[in-house]
């Protein structure tokens, strides 16, 4: 049990001391995760909305596929991206392996299905309510999608949050394509894995506490935004 006491001590000391190495790791974690989630939103929101509104052959299959991909194992995504980016791979010339860019690519692939699947659900429900109105107005398919995405914007925050949580917490993908290189590709989760394997359990747990704290802060912030919007009764 003394490890837990020591862990809180370590965590506090690291935060209070503004440990530069720690700040670097936190900074990279945030940069990689937020960039990945933004990319996943840019792809996943319209994709989910089109799946919710559109009628085309293969739609049902695509819906099942994307729902299934929500549970994609990070290690498998990491491995696939590794094979694409390695020197012998098709994208090897870009020399992206073991860079933050590679980590962003891997996490985007991981998060996009989550955002697309949740968006589809939210938009499909709202489309049920808006469909007759928008069709009677003669709204074109594209403006229908835009209308629904805008009106569901606060509900869709939840989808983005789910993606954010997934990206912030995963270690498998960033470990494989990033390599946990100090000062280059080391993020919170890979640092925790490393310290654990070195036996520095208190430090690892201290980092873990900071990671959970950050996750709570980000969630609280976005939830607060949604709640204030609900108070305005737009939602």
């Amino acid at each position: 049990m003394q490890d837990f006491g020591a862990a809180f001590g370590q965590a506090f000391a690291l935060i209070a001391g503004f440990d530069p190495a720690l700040m670097e790791i936190i900074g990279l974690s945030m940069r990689v995760t937020f960039t990945a989630v933004v990319i996943a939103c840019v792809i996943g929101l319209p994709l989910g909305a089109v799946l919710a509104v559109g009628k085309f052959p293969g739609r049902a299959t695509l819906v099942v596929l994307i729902s299934a991909l929500m549970g994609l194992p990070p290690v498998v995504v990491g491995l696939a991206v590794y094979m694409m980016l390695s020197a012998a791979g098709p994208l090897g010339v870009l020399q992206l392996l073991y860079t933050p860019t590679a980590m962003i690519i891997a996490q985007s692939i991981l998060v996009t299905p989550i955002i697309a699947a949740l968006t589809r659900q939210v938009i499909e429900d709202m489309h049920g309510e808006y469909d007759e109105l928008l069709r009677s107005m003669g709204s074109r398919r594209l403006s229908t999608v835009a209308t629904l995405l805008w009106d569901a914007r606060y509900s869709l925050l939840t989808a983005a949050l789910a993606g954010l949580g997934r990206a912030l917490a995963e270690v498998g993908a960033v470990m494989i394509v990033g390599g946990n290189i100090n000062h280059v590709t080391r993020v919170m989760t890979t640092a925790i894995a490393l310290e654990t394997s070195k036996g520095a359990l208190a430090l690892a747990l201290g980092l873990g506490i900071i990671l959970v704290g950050l996750s709570i802060l980000v969630n609280a912030g976005l939830m607060g935004l949604r709640k204030s919007a609900e108070r305005l009764a737009y939602a």
Partner: peptide
């Protein structure tokens, strides 16, 4: 028939979240 020249109002109004 230009679609927008026919307008329909429902019993229960459907207003956008705006």
């Amino acid at each position: 028939l230009p679609s927008q020249r026919v307008a329909l109002v429902f019993q229960k109004p459907v207003l956008l979240r705006r």
